[in-house]
Design a protein around this nucleic acid. Structure first.
Lengths: 355, 355
DNA sequence: AACACCATGGCAACCGGTTCCCTGGACGGA
DNA sequence: TCCGTCCAGGGAACCGGTTGCCATGGTGTT
């Protein structure tokens, strides 16, 4: 059985027109659907389209002003479960609203980020969603403000998601989730169990998400009139391996603590394994909490007490905010709430532990 | 401080030309970089570009034949860790080779898949990578063969990744990883520990990936002269929740088994929790194994014995295969190997267990 | 039978770029 | 001083579509 011949490499609208014995405009109109065309002509055109397996070039359509709009989602690494869930939300909502969605990973490199945004501006993307914490330096604000202006002046739109907001006046929508508040409530919960020496496995020291969670940790202590021991603040990546390594080191250094708060469920997972390897029981000997509430937080043993962040919802919201923005309207700034999910990994400190 | 004015909504090359007092062709040449242009002219043009914050329209460039090529990655759900790792590999390799990369989720819906491929053909994507198992029906082969032909005749290329191959003759590259072989070795390892009643938590019964792993399970039994009890084959989704539910059900039904092989680490995670909830110890009372070797398989307790699949490598390979294909060359068909990672979740069956 | 009118489809301009081809002017050599 | 050459830059065609405007021909009405 021979397949459709697929003769030419790619057929144009004029090829179709020639084969159907009509002009290019007629083909365009038949395909467009609204303009009145006689049944006979329509039939001939459609046959030619089928025979040539013709599809109109989306770029040409776009340039003529009748394209599928595009939306870009720029993140650090799709491999992180929380980012993946946001990407999922973004993608779903974008296709639901009839937009094409491209995903770019920056691998944490600022230059990649710049390149991508420039590329998206060239693609005339309807919006660019930038997601994930970053270093909140004057240089960052300056650079991102410039991006926002560039995009805005091209009729596009920048949305910051889980990123520090810029100076008021930047044409940018910001959607944050409450890192500090979530960590505050979580640590308060841990302290309420009676813990007084709580190890914090933080992220990179210049990373806003990490810092927000760290601030929550500190604030919860202060609210109880406690001053946490600076030696209990450790820093690393948001990865399983970092959590594992940091925890091992803390144990080896003989740090004195009865609970561990990790700045990410992934970090908590690594830490948990290190605790198990050291023969410690959780929460019997040490309590442990995470942050993000990724799906398998439930499947750690003990099930991980953590902070739920509505990542997928966040992604959907970002898209809607970006696309529904009417030029001239005030820029939105949303702060989504989070809540603690109490499971089994946090309990009272061991009775034999003497402060 | 006032920002760049961003006067017009989006400036064209002619705007730049007018402002620099030259023709559009000159601007194009300055930006192109190769054609000789006097320093003075170049300066004026560059200044105009900066002042207008001009970026050439990528779609217009594409249509003129000088664009950044695009590559599409179509998967079921970015939320699955293994897919996320593949997507990561694809994305990295694509940008490394100077391609734009768009990611589409089908949510498992065949119509979405068709739509996306059609859309990518319209985008004149250099390649479309279709990933993940599916139902291997005649209808699937027919439909996918048509896609392959369509893309090929448009000068593009279809790559199937972890998907059943088509009839020989379809212009398609296929990259598989050995589901059956991996499961065979894994189950052989379990049987070698002395287990004789091994529960299999399979995927959907029409899903090639799931079926491949199931075949490996069966083959490993046959190789030992064993016939597995059909009652020990359970089926569900590739999710944590499915694993949890299936395991609960199996325990409630009083199924007789000493080991569990899950067709996915996610499924294994859910199953593990169900076992713990039932007060069973792993591997003391029941052994458990997974498949995929996602990063936190190590952090389950006990650490999960599983089959490693080089997902990121798979993604990179798919891109390279797609882009390096010279028309007319024979279509590639790769089968990547997998290997068992032995950790702590599989041990001998309990001594008191009488076959 | 003549007129008006409407349905149909072709021509050409346009979207925003690139590039071939050609011209005008500067400069060097005879 | 005159001519040949070379270089910089402009004009126009083209990429593959869409769409406003107009011509044509068939039909209905009086």
């Amino acid at each position: 059985m021979t397949r459709k011949s697929g003769d030419a490499s790619r057929s144009t609208i004029r090829d179709v027109a020639a084969r159907a014995g009509v002009s290019a405009s007629t083909v365009s109109r038949v395909l467009g659907g609204v303009y009145p065309v006689s049944a006979a002509t329509r039939g001939r055109v459609m046959r030619a389209v089928r025979e040539l397996d013709y599809v109109a070039d989306a770029r040409a359509k776009a340039i003529a002003g009748v394209g599928t709009p595009t939306l870009a989602f720029v993140l650090e690494d799709i491999t992180g479960p929380s980012f993946a869930h946001m990407a999922h939300g973004v993608e779903r909502e974008a296709t639901r609203l009839g937009h094409l969605c491209l995903v770019c990973s920056t691998e944490g490199d600022v230059r990649h980020e710049l390149e991508f945004v420039e590329m998206m501006r060239a693609q005339r993307a309807a919006a660019v969603i930038l997601v994930g914490g970053t270093a909140d330096t004057p240089e960052y604000r300056e650079r991102t403000h410039r991006m926002a202006d560039s995009l805005a002046s091209a009729g596009s739109r920048l949305v910051l998601c889980g990123r520090p907001p810029l100076d008021p006046g930047a044409p940018v929508a910001v959607i944050e989730y409450d890192n500090e508040g979530g960590a505050y409530t979580l640590v308060a919960h841990v302290l309420a169990q009676g813990h007084r020496r709580v190890l914090f496995l933080g992220g990179r020291t210049d990373h806003t998400t990490a810092l927000g969670r760290e601030r929550g940790y500190l604030a919860a202590h202060r609210a109880r009139g406690l001053t946490p021991d600076p030696a209990l603040l450790l820093h690393g990546d948001f990865t399983r391996d970092a959590g594992h390594r940091l925890m091992q080191q803390a144990l080896k250094d003989g740090l004195d603590f009865t609970a561990v708060v990790a700045s990410t469920d992934m970090v908590a997972a690594g830490a948990l394994t290190a605790l198990h390897e050291a023969g410690l029981s959780v929460p019997g000997d040490v309590s442990l909490a995470g942050y993000d509430d990724i799906p398998f937080a439930r499947d750690l043993h003990p099930a991980l007490t953590t902070v739920h962040v509505p990542y997928e919802e966040l992604g959907r919201l970002a898209v809607r905010t970006a696309l529904e923005h009417t030029p001239g309207a005030p820029d939105e700034h949303l702060l989504l709430g989070t809540h603690v999910v109490v499971r089994d990994s946090v309990g009272p400190p061991p009775a034999h532990w003497s402060r």
